[in-house]
Design a binder for these strands. Structure first.
Length: 256
DNA sequence: ATGGTTGCGAAGCAA
């Protein structure tokens, strides 16, 4: 079973690339972020034609998350249970082929002195509380998405250039570590602890060409799934070519 | 050298 996460930076703009990628990649479940559309604008037909069922959670032109599955999609839920807590359509859950999956788009934070940074930390705390209450880590569960956090200095091209910026602060990394502390492990870090497995490169300034990237798109797997982990990688090829997303997909394979 | 690019939506903001 292959599970992927991909921030597509507008599903409308990226549809040709996403469909091409689905046809070329034997992936069973895909967690999408930044679809940038409302539910009534989401058309599952192109995915259905490729054998995928789909669930989407979006309310406007910002954020928006989705799940595609060709091994069933049941128990679809959005948010953290309390509609007042999760504004912005940033998390969606479903059970696909016996695995609970959560597609997450963590708020960017913008800058350490920006109010959105506190929003980011608060959102991560809501996620941690929700996961703790759900005790979802006892069963096969993958939390995948754009965390907007580079877990360590090995996950950025130049730690010195990012001192004092968001995505690398101690508080954000502690929040991510707290999530993992509930019983999850970063699958790419587990299999490829060496540096340089970046998943995002800024559109500007030739960042991709210079490999000025960060690893901020993560697949976190619960212990029952870690025992089934076979492979995990970033699909850098998807960042190349015509009209790419600024994020590359992250793909993990688990034994059935 | 606070630049540079993309997406949304139709100017400027968000990333």
């Amino acid at each position: 079973m292959k599970i992927a996460t991909w921030n597509v930076n507008s599903l409308r703009a990226r549809m040709p690339r996403v469909l091409e990628w689905l046809e070329a990649t034997e992936v069973d479940v895909v967690l999408l972020q930044e679809t940038k559309m409302a539910n009534d604008a989401f058309d599952p037909a192109p995915f259905t034609e490729l054998g995928y069922e789909a669930a989407h959670h979006g309310d406007g032109q910002w954020n928006g998350v989705a799940i595609l599955s060709r091994c069933g999609i049941e128990g679809v839920e959005s948010g953290f249970g309390d509609p007042q807590v999760e504004a912005g359509c940033r998390i969606l859950h479903a059970t696909c082929g016996g695995v609970r999956v959560s597609s997450v788009y963590v708020p960017n934070g913008r800058a350490l002195d920006d109010p959105h940074y506190a929003v980011k930390l608060r959102w991560l705390e809501h996620l941690r509380t929700w996961l703790d209450d759900a005790s979802a880590a006892n069963a096969p569960h993958v939390i995948g998405g754009d965390f907007n956090i580079a877990p360590s200095d090995a996950d950025v091209w130049d730690p010195a250039a990012l001192v004092g910026m968001t995505h690398v602060s101690a508080a954000e990394r502690a929040a991510l570590a707290a999530l993992c502390g509930l019983g999850y492990e970063d699958v790419v870090e587990h299999l490829h602890p060496q540096a340089g497995q970046f998943s995002w490169w800024d559109y500007r300034g030739g960042s991709f060409r210079q490999n000025h990237g960060m690893r901020i798109d993560l697949l976190l797997a619960s212990a029952p799934l870690m025992g089934r982990l076979i492979a995990a990688s970033v699909d850098r090829e998807a960042r190349k070519g015509e009209k790419p997303s600024d994020h590359a997909p992250v793909v993990a394979r688990f034994s059935d």
